[in-house]
């Protein structure tokens, strides 16, 4: 393998070289000996492994001593009923509570009164129409007919 080609191979397998995961590479020995002999590749591997190793370590942090209290505070804050600030609206709340009930009753009365009027009007209209129609029909009964005789009989009976 040519030198340039090996340099390219080193670059391609840089992570495997740093993490020492070259087992599956057939030319592993070539590559490692090249890294030792080639100053450019050697520098690259060293610089890269320095950075990569820094990435390996991440400092751990410790929870503070009142960590649990903080959690409990969050829970309590959530479970506590929300307090509404005392405003004019909250002071008027007892009075305002009665408003919907009153409005509902008034509305009910209005509806009741309206429905009552409709029914009486309807009753009035229908009885008037019936009576006028009845008398109109009486006028149309031909004289000498059975119906006419019956009506005359009725009036005669009343006279007697």
């Amino acid at each position: 393998m040519k030198k340039n080609q090996l340099c390219r191979e080193v670059k391609a397998h840089l992570l495997d070289i740093v993490e020492q995961k070259l087992e599956n590479l057939p030319h592993k020995e070539f590559l490692l000996s090249h890294v030792k002999s080639c100053p450019k590749c050697n520098h690259l591997v060293q610089e890269f492994s320095k950075l990569w190793n820094q990435l390996e370590y991440f400092p751990e942090i410790e929870p503070s001593s009142d960590f649990f209290n903080g959690v409990i505070q969050k829970i309590e804050k959530h479970e506590r009923p929300k307090q509404i600030p005392q405003t004019i609206l909250t002071r008027l709340r007892p009075v305002l509570k009665a408003v919907p009930a009153t409005a509902f009753i008034l509305f009910g009365m209005l509806i009741g009164s309206f429905l009552g009027d409709v029914r009486s009007e309807a009753k009035k209209d229908s009885s008037y129409e019936f009576v006028s129609e009845y008398f109109n029909n009486l006028d149309e009964i031909p004289s000498g007919s059975v119906a006419d005789a019956y009506l005359n009989l009725d009036t005669r009976e009343r006279r007697d």
């Binding site: 942090i61 929870p63 960590f67 903080g70 969050k74 829970i75």
Partner: peptide
């Protein structure tokens, strides 16, 4: 410890990692 560190690593924010971790337990 597990929770605060994963929060720290994912947020990269030491100051607020504890707050996020407390939220996790909540």
């Amino acid at each position: 410890r597990m929770v605060i560190n994963v929060c720290f690593r994912l947020t990269g924010d030491r100051e607020n990692a504890e707050d996020v971790a407390q939220e996790v337990f909540f």
